[in-house]
């Protein structure tokens, strides 16, 4: 019995078509061109470039620092988002606006400022370095720059979700005997976890491609603090467009796999309690089974 269903909002076909065309022009076309260019090299050659000692080290640094930065932001960004949603304090609007600043700042300015701040004679560096931590011009510097750049992603993703949490759910947990920590870990955290994953994924992917701020604080020493985008620039400097494209494609594939994994995880955690099997079916199952 096939009946045509009518949607409340008209123009689904049009909207879908528009979406596909828009995404194709904006994303698929340039990426496709890139892959096509890289395909001038054989798979073996691409792998040779990707698995070179310097490339491998750069991948390690890039993915490692990005993961770490995204993880740090997932934790502290959660706290910032929580405080911005749940508490009111003087200057809250100011702090809220501050969160977006890394979006607006040219990344090179961010990188230079951070390098100046964390250098041995910088405002922060002069106190940190005597403790044995070098930040500017080490891989830690890369992480610091990436944390700065990607903070807004986690905070802005979490804020609306935290706003959505009903106070009553927390109260229910409390009357059931849950401690504050149990309420957080068993009730609040699971409900914001999907959004946290999304924020994490956004921060992570932004960090992977970040170049402008990182090169000013990284130190850029081969095998130690070179990031993949720097290597790509290095290839371009040699007029080796193919090599650069190959590196970019490998990076793209790796990030796509990672993002897909995170998104699947996010989708799964967000949707597993929404899949609506009709209740009648469940009732029939229950009636058929032994109870």
């Amino acid at each position: 019995m096939a009946t045509k269903t009518h949607r409340v909002l008209p123009g689904f076909g049009l909207a879908l078509g528009y979406t596909l065309v828009y995404l194709s022009i904006l994303i698929l076309l340039p990426l496709g061109g890139m892959v096509l260019k890289a395909s001038e090299l054989g798979f073996g050659q691409i792998m040779d470039i990707a698995l070179g000692e310097r490339s491998l080290a750069a991948f390690r640094v890039t993915f490692g620092a990005s993961l770490l930065a995204a993880a740090v932001n997932a934790f502290f960004g959660l706290i910032v988002a929580w405080i911005l949603v749940r508490y009111s304090f003087p200057g809250k609007r100011f702090v809220d606006a501050l969160v977006d600043l890394p979006f607006a700042l040219p990344t090179a300015v961010a990188g230079i400022t951070l390098a100046t701040l964390y250098a041995g004679n910088g405002w922060l560096g002069q106190y940190i370095e005597p403790l044995g931590f070098k930040i500017a011009y080490t891989p830690s510097g890369i992480v610091v720059a990436l944390i700065f750049i990607t903070l807004p992603f986690v905070v802005r993703t979490l804020q609306p979700v935290i706003e959505d949490i009903e106070m009553e759910v927390e109260e229910a947990a409390a009357t059931l005997g849950a401690s504050r920590w149990q309420t957080f870990s068993r009730v609040i955290f699971p409900s914001i976890f999907p959004a946290l994953l999304t924020g994490f994924a956004l921060a992570f992917s932004r960090a992977l491609g970040e170049y402008g701020s990182v090169i000013f604080i990284a130190g850029n020493l081969p095998l130690i603090s070179e990031i993949t985008p720097l290597l790509i620039i290095s290839k371009l400097e040699q007029y080796d467009v193919l090599g650069a494209t190959a590196l970019a494609v490998v990076m793209l594939v790796l990030s796509f796999i990672l993002l897909l994994t995170v998104n699947m995880l996010q989708w799964w955690t967000a949707n597993r309690y929404k899949n609506n099997e009709p209740l009648e079916l469940a009732a029939a199952k229950a009636a058929g089974g032994v109870s």
Binding site: G111, I112, T116, G120, N121, Y137, G219, N220, L221
Partner: peptide, 21 residues
């Protein structure tokens, strides 16, 4: 002996002159 490779000529200058490295 290079503790870092600067991003460009001017960045190297800043690192040396301003950050005193």
């Amino acid at each position: 002996n290079a503790p870092l490779f600067a991003a460009g000529g001017r960045d190297a200058t800043t690192t040396f002159m301003q950050r005193k490295m």
